[in-house]
């Protein structure tokens, strides 16, 4: 009994530093933002307790509600587009790498390289590339006689341009996860399928796809969380207001702008900002929790 006690004590002591850091930097801010969400702010200090009024404002009252729903809609577009383009491409790349064609090791590194760059660097880089006057992209298009758009300045293309940048930046990460999943499939299974006459398309859709279900779970969940917490790239490329005219506004930017104000108006509003942060947290936690259950069940079925 004493030995077991000592062991438990040891474990507790070893857990303490980590627990302290988590409490101080994760749990405490989370709890305080929950608390702030229920107060009206007078300047920077919590003033009156207002119950659920902040939540009601950001969900149903002008001028908040229109921006909240617009931002949420943009987050949904980002998620759908990243699933289709970034992760779809990642799956194809992973399959190509799996086939171990000549030079696949070099390509593996090249595909993964942008992932190690900071989002801020990637954002600035692509902002330059997409520049209407000095940008590489429009200069290249001009060579083949196309007059390029101001990609980040046009309301129709701005969000797409940032999603594209995100896909360029991140594609290596899901590719690596899929590749790891594919490499775990036994050679016999794949050879058997080949002998039965399966071509690449059949192999990818009928054989490998169900077998990499655990990898898909990870990729979908991470993409979901990333899409709804999206902040760095739009902040660097479009600014806190989601320029042009809110066409690139997402929940992260809207939260930041509401809580801390923009460069041109230093109005801070932690009450509504915290309400937004709490709603984002709940939305992501609940949906990704439910999504995980569904995806895990799918893994078992397979």
């Amino acid at each position: 009994m004493t030995a077991r006690w000592r062991l438990s004590l040891w474990i507790a002591v070893l857990l303490l530093p980590g627990l302290a850091v988590m409490t101080l930097f994760v749990a405490a801010p989370l709890v305080s933002s929950f608390r702030y969400a229920f107060f009206a702010f007078d300047g920077l200090l919590p003033g009156r307790f207002v119950g659920l009024a902040n939540f009601q404002d950001v969900l149903t009252e002008a001028p908040f509600a229109a921006q909240t729903w617009r931002a949420l809609w943009h987050n949904c577009i980002v998620f759908a587009a990243l699933m289709a383009t970034q992760n779809g491409l990642a799956y194809l790349i992973a399959f190509a790498l799996l086939k171990a064609l000549p030079g696949h090791r070099v390509h593996q590194v090249i595909v993964f390289l942008p992932v190690v760059l900071s989002a801020v660097i990637v954002g600035f880089l692509w902002k330059l590339f997409l520049h209407p006057l000095f940008g590489l992209v429009n200069a290249a298009l001009a060579l083949i006689g196309i007059h390029g758009l101001p990609w980040l300045g046009d309301e129709r293309t701005a969000l797409g341009a940032i999603i594209f940048t995100n896909a360029w930046h991140w594609v290596g990460f899901p590719a690596l996860i899929f590749l790891a999943g594919m490499q775990r499939i036994s050679k016999e299974t794949l050879e058997a399928a080949r002998i039965d006459g399966a071509n690449d398309r059949v192999l990818m859709t009928q054989v490998i796809w169900p077998l990499v279900a655990p990898s898909a779970t990870v990729v979908v969940t991470l993409t979901f969380i990333g899409s709804f917490n999206w902040f760095e790239l739009p902040y660097v490329m479009a600014g806190a207001t989601g320029s042009p005219g809110g066409a690139t506004d997402v929940l992260g930017l809207y939260f930041y702008r509401t809580a801390f104000g923009t460069a041109s108006s230093g109005l801070t509003d932690f009450g509504h900002g915290s309400a937004l942060a709490v709603l984002m947290f709940l939305f992501i936690a609940v949906i990704s929790g439910l999504g995980l259950r569904v995806l895990r069940r799918r893994e078992i079925e397979v």
């Binding site: 520049h131 209407p132 006057l133 390029g148 101001p150 990609w151 300045g153």
Partner: peptide, 12 residues
Amino acid sequence: LPDGFTGVDYAT
């Protein structure tokens, strides 16, 4: 205004 002015920022 400059060509593609909707994409021309302050620094430019």
